[in-house]
C-alpha cells in the first residue's frame, strides 16, 4: 500500500530568505543574540526567544564534525548509493548543518575532513538545492555567489512524502476478502452479545472479546438509511443524482455503505429490500468492488421495527 502526499508549506521571513539564497547558490546563517551564526538559521533565538532578524552569508566549504555511514540508503535520501550523513560546520558558522557527504566508503571520510557543496542542477528553493557535500581536497572557496538581498523570491516549498506499507489483513479480514473472491460474504458473531459483524473486525466493539464464530451471510438485505448525491466532484464516475446507502444484510447486525442503482433516486426509501449485483465472475478479486452495486429486489419493504436498532 502506498501513501503519498505533497505537503506545501509557507515559509516565514527567515526561511524565505534562506531558501531564496540557496536557489542563488548562497548559504545564509542566522545571527543569534550571543553573536553565534547558526545554519540553517532558526526563526527564534533558542535562548532569548527573540525573533532572528540578521542573516549573513557563510561559506559553501566546511569541516565534518561527526558522521555516520549509510550502508543501505532509503528512498528519497540525497544519494541512492551508500554515503555518509554528517554534521558539517561551514566556514563562518558556529553550529553544524546536517547533510549528506558523497564518498565511496567509510574509509574516505573522517572527522575534520574539509568538504564543499555540490549544488543541485535544478534549483528548487529547498534544502535539496545542496545536492550533497563532497571532499574539498585542496580547493579553496571562491566565496558565496553574489546575491541580491531584497524581497525573497521563495516564499513556500513542497515536501513530497511517499510511504510504502505492507498491509497485512487480520485473520478475520483475510477470511472476508478471500470469501469475496468466491462470491461469498463472511461475517463474525460475538460469542457474548451474539451480534454479527460484517466486515468482521477481530473484536466485538461492545464486549471487547474476539469475534470467533464465522457466519456466511446472504447478498441481500434491507436499506436502513441513505443519501442522494447531487454534488459533482472531481473523479466522480457515476452520473448524479445517485444514492449511497447503508445496507443491512439479512442476519447481520451492522450495516455497511454501498451504492444503490437500477432505481430512480427519488424512489429510494428506508426499509427498501435490496440485493447485490455482482461483477462477472471472471473479474472477481479479493475486493468488495466485486459487488458493483445493490438494486431493489421488488419484495415488500421491511417493517421499521426490523431495522430500527441498526440506524
Amino acid at each position: 500500500m502506498k501513501v503519498e502526499f505533497d505537503y506545501t508549506r509557507s515559509l516565514g521571513s527567515v526561511l524565505s530568505q534562506f531558501m531564496s539564497a540557496l536557489k542563488q547558490h548562497s548559504i545564509l546563517g542566522g545571527v543569534l543574540a550571543d553573536g553565534r551564526v547558526v545554519v540553517p538559521p532558526p526563526e527564534y533565538d533558542p535562548v532569548t526567544h527573540a525573533a532572528v532578524t540578521e542573516l549573513v552569508p557563510v561559506s559553501d566549504f566546511g569541516v565534518v564534525q561527526s558522521w555516520s555511514w549509510v550502508a543501505e540508503p532509503v528512498a528519497q535520501q540525497p544519494l541512492e548509493k551508500p554515503f555518509a550523513f554528517a554534521q558539517i560546520l561551514l566556514d563562518g558558522a558556529d553550529a553544524p548543518l546536517l547533510h549528506a557527504v558523497a564518498v565511496d566508503s567509510p574509509a574516505d571520510i573522517s572527522t575534520g575532513m574539509r568538504v564543499r557543496v555540490r549544488w543541485a542542477e535544478q534549483p528548487t528553493g529547498t534544502i535539496r538545492d545542496i545536492a550533497w557535500f563532497e571532499p574539498a581536497g585542496d580547493a579553496v572557496t571562491e566565496g558565496s555567489a553574489s546575491m541580491e538581498f531584497g524581497a525573497p523570491e521563495v516564499t513556500g516549498m513542497t515536501s513530497p512524502v511517499r510511504l510504502a506499507y505492507d498491509y497485512a489483513a487480520s485473520p478475520e479480514e483475510t477470511k472476508f476478502f478471500r470469501g469475496l473472491a468466491e462470491g461469498k460474504i463472511y461475517g463474525q458473531r460475538c460469542p457474548k452479545c451474539e451480534k454479527v459483524y460484517v466486515p468482521p473486525r477481530g473484536a466485538c466493539p461492545v464486549d471487547g472479546v474476539p469475534t470467533t464464530d464465522e457466519v456466511e451471510l446472504p447478498d441481500r438485505g434491507t436499506l436502513t438509511t441513505y443519501c442522494v448525491v447531487n454534488v459533482p466532484f472531481q473523479g466522480q464516475t457515476i452520473p448524479i443524482p445517485y444514492v449511497s446507502a447503508y445496507v443491512l444484510l439479512d442476519g447481520a447486525d451492522i450495516a455497511f455503505l454501498h451504492l444503490i442503482l437500477d432505481i430512480d433516486a427519488a424512489d429510494v426509501r428506508m426499509g427498501m429490500r435490496v440485493e447485490a449485483v455482482w461483477k462477472p465472475r471472471e473479474e472477481w478479486t479479493t475486493s468488495l468492488d466485486n459487488i458493483k452495486y445493490f438494486r431493489p429486489t421488488g419484495e415488500p419493504d421491511a417493517d421499521f421495527d426490523t431495522y430500527k436498532h441498526h440506524l
Partner: peptide, 25 residues
C-alpha cells in the same frame, strides 16, 4: 524539522550514528 531536515530523509540509525561518533571521538 519539516523545512531543513526532513526533506533529506535522515534516518534514525544515521542520526544515532552521528551522536555515537561524537561521543566516541
Amino acid at each position: 524539522d519539516p523545512y531543513t531536515a526532513q526533506p533529506l530523509w535522515p534516518d534514525t540509525v544515521s542520526l544515532a550514528g552521528i551522536q555515537a561518533r561524537e561521543g566516541l571521538e
